[in-house]
Write a protein that binds this DNA or RNA. Structure first.
Length: 575
RNA sequence: CGGUGAUUAGCGCAGCUUGGUAGCGCACUUGGUUUGGGUCCAAGGGGUCGCAAGUUCGAAUCUUGCAUCACCGACCA
């Protein structure tokens, strides 16, 4: 490709709307342009990268035995009504009507379509297992699109769906996909981790997320420092602290704590470590629709150690706690604890009390006294608080023992680029996907689903591989392998001839090569090519031609060397 | 949707407080100059000042409403 006949579209300045580095560089390097909130045009260079990612994903899915299909982006509403997600999915599902007034949706995912298809096409256990995938544009009407293509509303996704008659068969395919995903991210050249994940709204049993590690990631991942254990912080179990709880030695004492509302203020005011304090959160309880028709929801107290944060996902799974988590209103708090929110405590509190495992391990701790501007010191479970249950309801923090039993936890940020689930029979049942088993009986299929965010990977790769000069593409997904940068080509026939000759030869050798044949000063070319992040540069200048040499520069290592012109082709091909 | 901020040339911004007929840098065009790290000089082209209504002799500037974009929270590949 010649830059003079190409749409380079690089920008010197960073558009004000771009927050994260990948978004900034994708705009500046001319990979994407915004069209509307969460919607982007892929410019030629960006599309080249996107296609490379897509092809690696396709090759590895094919190698793993999955079969490619293509389903429509627009789907009829009745499929979604059949699965129940027409009601459940919420406003993220973009709904519309055709000219006849029939309801459709823009597909955010394709479980309904594929399951319906499988139900129609498959009749016998002999056709199982089967794993179908597609690489397709999805649309999710995100509340807040951000970070460019990292969280766009329209995005390219690989989604695969497998069908089975037994859990064991599903497990096999699940493991197979897990391995395929590792090969994909290995080939992409990214630093990633498979982590244990919450199954979220899709539901089901086993689930792993694949995260690319980057500071700007939106998820917190908990790792063991001495095993393979990694889990999304939403899911990481906080185990009961080792050892026996200390004995109650202090007397329960009510102390005045004027205008103290937060744990930070409390620990400073009383000069104690936040770890010796306890915070009590009041949330709405579960309404039992059958027995308490129309009654207001009761309130439940959640007790955490002062330095810990509530994990809402864990908490809302506990019986008696409303899902989603809803914090009690000021009136509810007044009614239940007779004080302001800053002074609630578990002592003498007349509502169900759920205590986190770590908080339950404390003795002689400090908590609210259920009296505005007062706290208790020297509080103890089983002496001052008797009616309570213990559960894991907090977020894991760095330094906690790993739930796998080996080592302690460190926390890093990750960008979720892949997610594999075992779905079970949910969709197969709803859509009527069943086959005859080997006893001749109709049996509902069990399902797995496996997603990869293809367009998100492009952004994630940049988040992980960049410097102050621009993008540093991993070799496997670079838009071009090598760029020829001639110095003042229009003034030197020798330079022009050599550059053109190398360009032709590299093309003939099947190397993806760009030649910067613009009438630009050297600095401009260097800056642009570094911004775009092409891994290898060949610089052709008068300086080296007398020795029949050109200069080579590596974008990753910044290593420079001189090469004999005759060696260039083999040198680049070997890279 | 809630909270915050923004909207002036393709991009980055000033002008608004104190109303008087729109400016800077980059990019673009032309000529010259320079030529191994975003040269320098000169001359140009390009703007319904987000939209609508109001106040006023006069509105980018003041008022009101709306729209769009971005950031912080709930969603997720």
């Amino acid at each position: 490709m010649r830059t003079s006949q190409y749409l380079l579209s690089t920008l010197k300045e960073t558009p004000a709307s771009a927050e994260v580095i990948s978004h900034q560089y994708m705009l500046r390097a001319g990979l994407i342009r915004p069209v509307a909130s969460g919607l982007y045009t892929w410019l030629p260079t960006g599309l080249k990268v996107l296609r490379k990612v897509e092809n690696i994903v396709r090759e590895e899915m094919d190698r793993a035995g999955a079969i490619e299909t293509l389903m429509p982006m627009v789907q009829p509403a009745d499929l979604w009504q059949q699965s129940g997600r027409w009601e459940d999915y919420g406003p993220e599902l973009l709904r519309m009507q055709d000219r006849h007034g029939r309801a459709f949706v823009l597909g955010p995912t394709h479980e309904e379509v594929i399951t319906k298809l499988i139900g129609l096409e498959l009749n016998s256990y002999k056709q199982l297992p089967i794993n179908l995938y597609q690489i397709q544009t999805k649309f999710r009407d995100e509340i807040r699109p951000r970070f460019g293509v990292m969280r766009g509303r329209e995005f390219l996704m690989k989604d695969a769906y497998s069908f089975h008659l037994s859990q064991q068969c599903l497990d096999n395919t699940y493991q197979n996909m897990h391995a395929a995903y590792c090969r994909i991210f290995d080939r992409l050249g990214l630093d990633y981790r498979p982590v244990i994940a919450d199954t979220g709204s899709i539901g089901g049993e086993a689930s792993h997320e694949f995260h690319v590690l980057a500071e700007s990631g939106e998820d917190d991942i908990a790792f063991s420092d001495s095993s393979d254990y990694a889990a999304n912080i939403e899911k990481a179990e906080c185990i009961t602290p080792a050892g026996e709880r200390g004995n109650a030695t202090a007397e329960l004492t009510k102390v005045a704590t004027p205008n103290i509302h937060t744990i930070k203020e409390l620990s400073e005011f009383l000069s104690v470590d936040a770890r010796q304090t306890v915070k009590t959160l009041l949330v709405k309880g579960e309404v039992d629709n059958e027995n308490n028709e129309g009654e207001t929801a009761p309130v439940v107290a959640l007790v955490l150690r002062g330095d810990h944060d509530l994990n809402e996902i864990k908490a809302e799974k506990i019986a008696g706690v409303a899902s989603p988590i809803t914090f009690a209103s000021e009136e509810d708090i007044k009614a239940a604890a007779n004080c302001d929110a800053g002074s609630i405590g578990p002592v003498g509190l007349n509502v169900p009390v759920i205590v986190d495992r770590s908080a339950a391990h404390l003795n002689d701790f400090i908590c609210g006294a259920n009296d505005t501007d007062y706290h208790y010191t020297g509080a103890n479970f089983d002496r001052d608080i008797n009616d309570y249950t213990v559960a894991d309801i907090r977020n894991i923090v760095a330094g906690d023992p790993s739930p796998c039993g080996n080592g302690s936890i460190t926390i890093k940020r990750g960008i979720e680029v892949g997610h594999i689930f075992q779905l079970g029979e949910k969709y197969a049942q709803a859509m009527g996907a069943a086959v005859l088993n080997n006893q001749g009986k109709n049996q509902t299929l069990t399902m797995g689903c496996y997603g990869i965010g293809v367009s998100r990977i492009v952004a994630a790769a940049i988040e992980q591989n960049n410097d102050e000069n621009g993008i540093i593409w991993p070799e496997a997904i670079a838009p071009f392998k090598v760029v020829i940068i001639p110095m003042n080509m229009h003034k030197s026939h020798r330079v022009q001839e050599t550059a053109e000759k190398l360009y032709q030869e590299l093309q003939t050798a099947g190397v993806e090569v760009m030649i910067d044949d613009r009438k630009e000063r050297p600095g401009v070319m260097f800056k642009d090519m570094e911004l775009i992040g092409i891994p290898h540069s060949i610089i052709v200048g008068e300086r080296n031609l007398d020795n029949a040499e050109v200069e080579y520069k590596n974008r990753i290592s910044s290593d420079k060397s001189t090469l004999k012109i005759a060696e260039v082709i083999d040198f680049i091909k070997a890279k």
